[in-house]
Design a protein around this nucleic acid. Structure first.
Lengths: 236, 236
DNA sequence: TCGAGCGTAGAACGGTGTTCGTTAACGAAC
DNA sequence: GTTCGTTAACGAACACCGTTCTACGCTCGA
């Protein structure tokens, strides 16, 4: 009993409940729940700590900073990616496209992960495994080393950017009707431009605003990239 | 004299200095100065207001929110882009690459503008004029309408992403020596991976980390995109 | 049994975007 | 010429953010 009796009312000392110990794993779990349920902006150190019933300072004993937590989230999402068993030189282009589709699928399944991934070199184990897989397919396609290396930089760049654009648009829970209205307003905007200075934008207003919500635009992008890469393949 | 003499000391009423009136133009000017001099993170409503010698609330009379200010910055930067006079069907691929290089040049000249542009559909007048120019070149290359439309979505996506990556790396004023050290550490990291699970990453460690600072990687990207687009050209 | 060390966490710091309510300036109308 | 109404300006505040400081309990080794 070191407490002096005349001290100001000692706080009712909330008995520290015997909780499950905090771990990196549990922190990433909680952050991932927030990310999937409420988007990237909901993943703050405060909210994650609150989700775990603790204080934000406690997180810093297990995670260096927010940026590292973002990387861990990206890596966690990368675990969900599934790849073809064996790279096939006969079908490498189709396999490459499949992998990009898979990458987008995972990013869509974890909305906000693109926001966390953007501008970061993915260095986690699972993320690197996906890089390894991409490299295998590209080498099966007979691409020069340097081309393959730069391609595994280009590919996530594109997929991440597409997914990020989608999450920005679908922020604040847009309904399909909202999206349709938005696209319609955008087309009207294009169509209202002065014809003398924007002839092509005006003529292509329909094409410019088509495929905003679906997969066609993404399919176009991965076709362009795949075709471009194929043109660099060595043919010995 | 409606002021009662016995009222609490009225504040010494600082005479509002007769300033130049606040306008959108002046706000964007100040924001652009901050962007170029101190990067995107320095462009906050507070700092912009401070730069103009006013309060942040005053900005909201001229600019809806931070997001709109970002769009205005992107548009301001787009004014600096210079395009070839006439799209030439014989040289459209080279012209397209030149335009992408020009786009990156402007983004590098205005560090942080990529951060402001990312995930936003550029709808400002100058930004749309650049879209128009891109469309003209793509149509000179005989691309189908839909392909051209999706291409003008793909192209800024890529250039912006590359520029954004650069600004992230060059944040907090990295010297070239810092960058070299960073790249070196990354290569060491790759080379230290277990050979059984990361054989290709390990073998290509050099290629994966090469060209991080220069233009080669960007040149690779625009070559891939241009070649991919060329493969879609109609040949009547 | 007693420290030492470590994980925990409350409070605070300095920053952000945005909004509220008041104040000053100016042009129009009486 | 004086009042009125509108509007821009702006200080203060709100609700957040990432991060750090510091003190407190608990556990474990000596």
């Amino acid at each position: 009993m070191t407490q002096s009796p005349w001290q100001p009312i000692s706080p009712p000392k909330p008995p520290r409940p015997a909780k499950a110990p905090l771990t990196r794993e549990r922190i990433v779990d909680a952050a991932m729940r927030l990310l999937v349920d409420h988007g990237y902006d909901a993943v703050s150190m405060r909210k994650v700590a609150q989700e775990l019933g603790t204080g934000q300072a406690s997180l810093y004993a297990h995670v260096a900073n927010k940026s590292e937590l973002d990387q861990l989230l990206v890596n966690r999402a990368a675990e969900q990616m599934e790849f073809p068993a064996e790279p096939d030189p006969e079908r490498w282009q189709e396999q490459l496209k499949d992998c990009m589709r898979e990458m987008l699928r995972v990013m869509r399944a974890n909305p906000g992960v693109a926001r966390a991934a953007i501008g970061q070199v993915p260095l986690g184990e699972q993320a690197l495994l996906s890089t390894e897989k991409f490299l295998a397919i590209l080498k099966a396609g007979n691409l020069p080393d340097q081309a393959a290396a730069w391609a595994v930089d280009l590919i996530p760049l594109y997929v991440t950017a597409v997914s990020f654009e989608e999450t920005v648009q679908s922020a604040s829970a847009w309904t399909p009707a909202d999206l349709e209205g938005y696209v319609g307003r955008m087309r009207s905007y294009f169509e209202g431009l002065p014809a003398d200075r924007f002839p092509l934008t005006l003529a292509l207003a329909g094409a410019l605003t088509s495929g905003s919500g679906g997969d066609e635009r993404f399919e176009f992008g991965i076709s362009v990239i795949t075709a471009g890469l194929a043109s660099l393949a060595e043919k010995p």
